[in-house]
Amino acid sequence: MRYLILFLGLLVFASPVSAVDPSEMLSNSLMETRAREISKGLRCVVCQNQSIDDSDAALARDLRVLVRERLVAGDSDNEVVEYVVSRYGDFVLLKPPFKGATLVLWGGPVLFVLIAFFAGLGFYRRQRRGAPSKPAAVALSNTERARLNDLLDKDGS
């Protein structure tokens, strides 16, 4: 029990780790924060589903250093991102931009919600108009009831 409490207590101090090495970090903490924010939005092209902030790959490390050097040289956040995009394409952005080529990507979910909404609305209206979609339940006839009882009896034995 004591260990459990200790374990849970330690979890309080747990925080997500990133792959950023202390030697890479900038001494200017404001700039370091900007670098971290940019890195979180850039995909590691080696491991693809990690950001360069999370990735241990050598190329991701070099990209992190490059991001920092460009910031120090006076680039704005956008200029840094644009440089990397000009080399690797929109693919490196973990959040793809809204433009012609990505219209289906961004518009697709909205389109499907609209389709579902109108389909539902149409269905609801038809129901209200009183068009019976199913025949009403009919009571069993005597022969049917006898057959059912017969079957249930057989099953029970």
Partner: peptide, 13 residues
């Protein structure tokens, strides 16, 4: 050594 040219060329591997 620091991937400068590699990144400029958009190299992934």
């Amino acid at each position: 050594p620091k991937s400068r040219a590699a990144i400029a060329f958009g190299v992934t591997g």
